[in-house]
Design a binder for these strands. Structure first.
Length: 848
RNA sequence: GCCGGGGUGGCGAAAUGGUAGACGCGAGGGACUUAAAAUCCCUUAUCCCGAAAUGGAUAUGUGGGUUCAAUUCCCACCCCCGGCACCA
C-alpha cells in the first residue's frame, strides 16, 4: 500500500542522520541504489571460509609451496590500528594472488607475546601477564579475522606458551652446547628510583622514560650469544637476498667490516703486551701517542701505586658517569689524562705516552689506539693537551706542505698525499701504498693484517619477569650448568611480585628455587634472568612449520623428536618466500633471525642458512605528519570505518592511497571513492551482466589490457594502480548497455585478491562454482589487446602539434605522409626537414 | 658528519626516455527532489588570444648539461624524511 510521507518525516530522518552518522541516510540510500551490504556479506563469507577450511594447508602434501607471512604482532590490549591493516591487508592480497596463480600458499599468523608492555600492565594493575596476554590474544584473533585474511589458524604460534618457549630454551641449550653462549660482565641501564633495569628504548636523553630520574650504568653478569662469529657470513649472505637495497646497506653498515692491521705493542717497564687495530696503517710512522678506553681493565694496572693513580682513577669514574647520564656528545666531551706510562715503541721513533681518553670505544678493536697527526680527532686531542705530533705525509703544493709540516692543520686520508716516511716509501702516494705498507710492517714483524667488525655480540639477559627463563642452573660454587632437555619447558614460575625491587623478579619465587634444589641438589640456584624477546622471534617461521596435528588439535613438536621442525618440511618450505614487515627491524630482528638460522644449519638441524628469501617493508602511515602513538593520542582506529563500509573497502582504500612501500599521511577524505567503486561494480556486474551477450571489441581489448595490468601490478605490489585499472574498466563497462557474464566473472576474479569478500559474493551470484579464491587467475590474450586503430602524436622540434588516428598495421611511410599533411603540422613545416623519427605506435618527430 | 629515500595540480597520486597529471578525492555547474542526502551528467594545472578550434605560451624543488624528445639520464645546489653516529 502506497503511503505518502509528510515533509517532516524526511526532516526527522535527516536530523537523525546528522546526529548519528552511522545511521546516516547516505549509507541507507546507497544501499537502496546498489544493494550490496558489506557487513552481512563479509560475515557470511568469513564463516564459510572457516567452515570449509579453505585456508588450511597440508604442509606435507602441498606440491607448489609458497610460504608468505608478516612480522607477527605483539598482542596488545589496544585494538588493531591502521598500521596493522596497512601491513596485513596488502600482504594478504599478495598471498591470495599467489594462490590463484597456482601455488600452495601457506600464510600463518602468531603472536610475539612475551615482553615489556604486559609486564608494565601487571605492575600497574596486578593482573598477571599470562592472563592479560591470553585475553588480548583472544580478542586480537577476532579482530584479525575481520580483515578477511587467509591465515591458516591451525598453525598459530604464541611465544609465551610453554610449548613454544620450551623450544626457545632448547635453542639456548644448543647455543651453549656449541660454544656460542657465554657469560660476561655487561652494563645495564638502571633507574634508581623505579628500582628497575631499563631497555635502551626506555632511556630518554639519559633519563628514565617514566620518572625522569637520571639513569645509571650497573655492571651485571649477563649471557651473550656470539653473533660476531657469524659477522662475515651475515655480510656475505646479503648479496643473494631479494631484499630492499636500503635494508641490505643498513645491515652492511651495522656489521661494519673494516680491514686493517693489528700492531703488536708492549708497555714499557710493565712488559704487558697487546694489539692495536689500525685501518689506516700508511701513516704508522706518524704515531706519537697512545690512547686507551676509560673502561679498559689495563688502566688500573698502568697507574697502580704511581702518583698518577688518584687523578686517573677519578677521571675514569667521571667519564663512566658522564657516559651513563648523558646522551654523549663527542665534540663536547673530548677529554683525557696522562697515565705516566709509555708504549715501548716498535717503530724506532720514540716511546708513545699513554693517555686515557674519553673518545676511545672499549668494544671496538682492542680498546687501545695509536694516534697520529693524520687523523682529525687525534690531531685535535693532541693540540688540546700539547702532545707532540709528526707529519709523515705532505700535500704536493710546497706552500701547503710547509703548513702541514708545521702542524697548522690536520692532513688526513688524502689519496694524493706524498709519503715522507718510512724512507723506502718516500715520494709515493698515500692512495697507492696501503698494501705495500702492510707487507712492509709484516716483514718488520710489528703488524699483521686483520679484520674488525662493528657488530657486537647479542646480550640476551633481561632482568625481567615476562620472558622465557634462561635454562641454566648454578651449583653451590656458582658454576653454570645447562638444564637437561628432559626438564624443558623450564617453566616460568607464577609466584612472583611484579613491583620492581631492584633485581630480577624471579629471585622472589620460592617455587623456582625449591624446584631447582629438588632436581639438582641443595644450594643450587636457577638463573633468574629471562631471555630477550628477540630470541623468541628469531626462529618463529620454523615454528609455524613445526605445528603438528595430534588428535585433531595442533601443538608444537615434542622435544624427544630432537628438533623444532621436521627436516623434510624445513627443506620444502624454507626459506620464507615473502616476508612483509616494518623497516624498524632492519638491524635487530632481521639480523638475529639470520644468525639463528645460520647457527641451526651449522648444528645440523636445518638445510638453509637464510630464513627470508624475499623481504618487503610496508610504508609507515602517519597522522598529521607524526607517527601514530598512544602517548601522542593520534592513533586512528579502523573500527568505525570497517563498521560502516566493510573490510574490503577499508583494505582497498589503504591500498589505493599510494604505493605500498611508501606509506603516507592518514586522511579519510578519499574513502568515498572506494565506497562508490564497490557499490558500482557490484551493481553493474549483478544487474547488467547477461549470459548471451557479445562484448564490443573495445570492451574485449580493455578487459585483456586490464588483466595484464592487474597481474603485473599485484606481482609488483603496486595495488594502487591495479585498482585504478579496474576502475577504468568499470567506467567503460558502465557506458555499455550490458556486459557478458563471462567478462563479469573474470572481473570478479580480478577483484579477489584485493576485495576477497566482494569477489566471493559476485562469483557466487554470477553462478561460479566453489570459491573464487579456489579459481585460477585469469590470463590475457595478447591478440585481443591489439586494437584496430592507434593514435600517433606528431611533434615538430619536440613540440606536439597534432595527432593521427591510423590503422594499427599502417606502414611507417604512410604515417609519415599523413603526419605531414595535418593542417596544424603544415603551419610549422616552414623549412626543410632535417630529421624524421618514428616511434612505432607512439609518435612521429620531425626536426626542421 | 656519514649512509639511504624523496620533492609533480587545491589534495592522495600516475607516467622510469616518447601526448605530464591516468585513477580517485575535493571544488564548480547541471539533472532528479517540495527540500536535502544519495545517485547520474558536464567542467576542473596556470596564463594568453579567440566566436570556436585538433590555437598559443608556461609548468614535475633550483640552476646547468646530454637528446629530435627529459618527471625519467648526467653535474652542482636547496629543502624534507628515515637510519647510523667518538668504530681508530
Amino acid at each position: 500500500m502506497f503511503v505518502a510521507y509528510p515533509y517532516y518525516y524526511y526532516k526527522i530522518l535527516d536530523v537523525i542522520g546528522q546526529l548519528f552518522p552511522v545511521f546516516s541516510l547516505h549509507g541507507y540510500t546507497a544501499h537502496m541504489q546498489h544493494p550490496y551490504d558489506p557487513t552481512t556479506t563479509e560475515a557470511k563469507w568469513q564463516k564459510k571460509w572457516e567452515e570449509e577450511k579453505v585456508y588450511s594447508v597440508d604442509l606435507k602434501k602441498a606440491k607448489k609451496p609458497y610460504y608468505a607471512h608478516v612480522m607477527f604482532p605483539y598482542p596488545s590490549g589496544d585494538k588493531l590500528h591502521v598500521g596493522h591493516w596497512y601491513n596485513f591487508g596488502p600482504a594478504d592480497s599478495f598471498a591470495r594472488f599467489q594462490r590463484m596463480q597456482g601455488y600452495d600458499v601457506f600464510t600463518p599468523m602468531g603472536f610475539d607475546a612475551f615482553g615489556l608492555p604486559a609486564e608494565n600492565y601487571a605492575i600497574k594493575t596486578g593482573i598477571h601477564p599470562d592472563a592479560s596476554t591470553k585475553k588480548n590474544v583472544e580478542t586480537m584473533i577476532k579482530q584479525l579475522k575481520r580483515i578477511g585474511c587467509m591465515y591458516d589458524w591451525d598453525k598459530m604460534v604464541n611465544t609465551s606458551n610453554p610449548e613454544y618457549y620450551k623450544w626457545t630454551q632448547w635453542l639456548f641449550l644448543q647455543m651453549f652446547k656449541n660454544g656460542l653462549a657465554y657469560k660476561k660482565l655487561g652494563n645495564v641501564n638502571f633507574c634508581p628510583s623505579c628500582q628497575t633495569v631499563l631497555a635502551n628504548e626506555q632511556v630518554w636523553e639519559g633519563k628514565c622514560e617514566r620518572c625522569e630520574t637520571e639513569v645509571i650504568q650497573k655492571p651485571l653478569e649477563q649471557w651473550f650469544w656470539n653473533t660476531k662469529k657469524y659477522a662475515q657470513q651475515l655480510l656475505d649472505g646479503l648479496k643473494d637476498l631479494d631484499w630492499p637495497n636500503k635494508t641490505k646497506i643498513m645491515q652492511e653498515n651495522w656489521i661494519g667490516r673494516n680491514e686493517g692491521v693489528n700492531i703488536h705493542s708492549k708497555i714499557k717497564d710493565l712488559g704487558d703486551e697487546f694489539e692495536v687495530f689500525d685501518s689506516v696503517p700508511q701513516t704508522f710512522m706518524a704515531q706519537t701517542f697512545t690512547v686507551i678506553a676509560p673502561e679498559h681493565p689495563l688502566v688500573a694496572k698502568l697507574v697502580k701505586g704511581t702518583k698518577y693513580e688518584k687523578g686517573v682513577m677519578a677521571f675514569v669514574a667521571k667519564i663512566k658517569k658522564l657516559k651513563a647520564t648523558e646522551k654523549y656528545k663527542f665534540d663536547e666531551h673530548v677529554e683525557g689524562i696522562f697515565t705516566g706510562r709509555y708504549v715501548d715503541n716498535p717503530f724506532g721513533t720514540g716511546d708513545l705516552p699513554i693517555w686515557v681518553a674519553s673518545f676511545v670505544v672499549m668494544d671496538y678493536g682492542t680498546g687501545i689506539v695509536h694516534c697520529s697527526a693524520h687523523d682529525t680527532r687525534d690531531f685535535a686531542f693532541a693540540k688540546k693537551y700539547d702532545i707532540p705530533l709528526r707529519a709523515v705525509m705532505l700535500p704536493e703544493d710546497p706552500k701547503e706542505a710547509e703548513k702541514v709540516k708545521n702542524l697548522e692543520y690536520c692532513y688526513a686520508k688524502a689519496p694524493e698525499g706524498i709519503m715522507q716516511k718510512p724512507d723506502v716509501f718516500k715520494g709515493r702516494r698515500w692512495g697507492e701504498v696501503r698494501e705495500d705498507i702492510i707487507k712492509h710492517m709484516g716483514k718488520l714483524g710489528i703488524a699483521k693484517p686483520t679484520v674488525q667488525y662493528r657488530l657486537r655480540d647479542w646480550l640476551l639477559s633481561r632482568q625481567r619477569y615476562w620472558g622465557a627463563p634462561i635454562p641454566i642452573v648454578y651449583d653451590p660454587e656458582g658454576n653454570a650448568h645447562p638444564v637437561p632437555e628432559k626438564h624443558l619447558p623450564w617453566v616460568l614460575p607464577t609466584d612472583v611480585e611484579f613491583k620492581p625491587k631492584g633485581e630480577s623478579p624471579l629471585r622472589l619465587s620460592k617455587e623456582f628455587i625449591a624446584r631447582t634444589e629438588k632436581i639438582f641438589g641443595k644450594g643450587w640456584r636457577p638463573e633468574f634472568d629471562t631471555m630477550d624477546t628477540f630470541v623468541c622471534s628469531s626462529y618463529y617461521s620454523l615454528m609455524y612449520l613445526g605445528a603438528q596435528n595430534k588428535k585433531g588439535k595442533y601443538t608444537q613438536r615434542d622435544l624427544n623428536e630432537g628438533s623444532l621442525v621436521d627436516p623434510e618440511l624445513e627443506k620444502k618450505w624454507m626459506p620464507v618466500s615473502m616476508y612483509i614487515g616494518g623497516p624498524e627491524h632492519a638491524c635487530m630482528h632481521l639480523i638475529y633471525a639470520r644468525f639463528v638460522m645460520m647457527a641451526l644449519k651449522d648444528f645440523g638441524f636445518v638445510s638453509h642458512s637464510e630464513p627470508f628469501k624475499k623481504l618487503v617493508h610496508q610504508g609507515l602511515i602517519t597522522n598529521k605528519g607524526a607517527k601514530m602513538s598512544k602517548s601522542k593520542g593520534n592513533v586512528v582506529s579502523p573500527d568505525s570505518f570497517v563498521d560502516q563500509y566493510g573490510a574490503d573497502v577499508f583494505r582497498m582504500y589503504l591500498m589505493f592511497m599510494g604505493p605500498f612501500t611508501d606509506g603516507g599521511d592518514w586522511s579519510d577524505t578519499g574513502i568515498k571513492g572506494i565506497v562508490r567503486f564497490v557499490q558500482r561494480i557490484h551493481g553493474v556486474l549483478t544487474e547488467k551482466s547477461k549470459k548471451k551477450f557479445e562484448d564490443s571489441p573495445k570492451v574485449q581489448a580493455t578487459l585483456h589490457k586490464t588483466i595484464k595490468k592487474v597481474t603485473e601490478d599485484i606481482q609488483a605490489l603496486h595495488f594502487n594502480t591495479a585498482i585504478a585499472a579496474l576502475m577504468e574498466l568499470l567506467n567503460l563497462i558502465e557506458k555499455e548497455e550490458a556486459v557478458s557474464q563471462e567478462t563479469a566473472r573474470i572481473i570478479a576474479l580480478l577483484l579477489a585478491p584485493m576485495a576477497p569478500h566482494l569477489a566471493e559474493e559476485l562469483w557466487s551470484v554470477l553462478g561460479g562454482k566453489k570459491f573464487a579464491i579456489e579459481q585460477s587467475w585469469p590470463t590475457f590474450d595478447p591478440a585481443l589487446i591489439k586494437e584496430d586503430t592507434m593514435t600517433v602524436v606528431v611533434q615538430i622540434n619536440g613540440k606536439v602539434r597534432g595527432d593521427l588516428i591510423v590503422a594499427s598495421d599502417a606502414s611507417k611511410e604512410s604515417i609519415l605522409k599523413a603526419a605531414k599533411e595535418l593542417p596544424n603540422v603544415q603551419k610549422y613545416l616552414t623549412g626543410a626537414i632535417k630529421k624524421e623519427i618514428y616511434v612505432p605506435g607512439r609518435l612521429v618527430s620531425l626536426v626542421v
